[in-house]
Amino acid sequence: MNAANRSHFVYVTFIRTTPAKVWEALTEPQLIRQYWFNTTAECGWKKGSPWKMVRPDGSLTDTGEILEIDPPRRMVIRWQNEWNPELKAEGSSRCTYELAPVDSAVKLTITHEIDRPESKLITAVSGAWPSCLSNLKSLLETGEVAITTHPGH
């Protein structure tokens, strides 16, 4: 696909911990909630498992399914917005998590892409990811998160 016909971003953070700990933080609902502003993921974490992001009141922010999963190295999620009609209308995007040990840290790369130019969904998620990743890093390295309210809310 021509780069002009898609929207994507690549975000990277280095976390001083083990791949197993990062993987746990990406898949354990009680941990996800801590760095994702009280929203969490519900999923069986197997290939083909339905995946959804759920607010504390039970409403959904995003849904999709696990397209690829290879713990603790790689996971690809089909990701569709549920809370904003305009973003939902854009359909499915793909979010890829890649974990690689680097020295005594883990390089976590998040790629989020959709096969359409100027995607508002990608703009929306790209705004939220840096705070989530910054929170995830401080949670794993210090046991605490820096930001407790969603920057967009």
Partner: peptide
């Protein structure tokens, strides 16, 4: 690709 995650860490 621009990676804004370290900027967020500076901000925090």
């Amino acid at each position: 690709f621009l990676n804004p995650v370290p900027l967020q860490e500076i901000y925090d």
